[in-house]
Design a protein around this nucleic acid. Structure first.
Lengths: 103, 103
DNA sequence: ACCGTTCATCGTAATATTGCGATAAGTTTC
DNA sequence: GAAACTTATCGCAATATTACGATGAACGGT
């Protein structure tokens, strides 16, 4: 059916999957890496930095925003994108907790 | 088009995205958690543990195997699934490297 | 008021994912 | 060999994702 049976799994499992899905595309990985390297908020040079059209980049940014990984603040005429450190820590602890035992 | 422009991104970015995609579904998160909790190889109780049909579980297992996160060894009449510690370490270092600077 | 710049959204098309039942493939046991 | 058990694969349908061009919304400067 193509329907993810979200309701059948725990909130934690769904959240981990949501965070993973946000990074499940190389363009979104590239965006996050770009923001990390800049160590600052970036006022939308991302379209130039990526081999994708403006509308596609905007869609990927929306996906990252929905997952909470980045935030965007309007700074006319541009929009500044920042990594959300709180959610990155959540990401680290979620996956760290999973794998700390074995690795 | 729905085509991921894989060739436009670095090998590292594609690999990170591939690993993330493997955990981008709550069922696959549940499978990995189950294997972690068991701290051993599991001979296919997974279908009982998940609210999904046998064929669907088999598909998710295939996805995890393709990404290298688990391995399956035939132990007739069952198949034993194990976490691949090497790839879990790869996972940890890939994401740890990304986020260590900021968190 | 009119541009130009920047970004989001809409509409569309191609492809991928998710899920299940049915069926096939591989063993062991009888 | 036949039957039982376990897992993989096929075929299908519903939905999601990816990508782009075109258009729209918001703002600043002229």
């Amino acid at each position: 059916m193509g329907l993810s049976k979200t309701a059948s799994f725990s909130t934690e499992q769904n959240r981990i999957a949501e965070l993973a899905k946000a990074l499940a595309h190389p363009a979104r990985v590239a965006i996050v890496q770009y923001l990390l390297k800049a160590e600052a908020c970036i006022c939308g040079d991302l379209v130039d930095a990526l081999p994708l059209s403006q509308s596609t980049v905007s869609q990927h940014l929306k996906a990252l925003k929905t997952a909470g990984i980045i935030t965007g603040s309007v700074e006319p005429p541009k929009v500044c994108y920042c990594l959300n450190i709180t959610v990155l820590k959540e990401f680290n602890s979620a996956f760290g907790e999973m794998f700390s035992r074995c690795c």
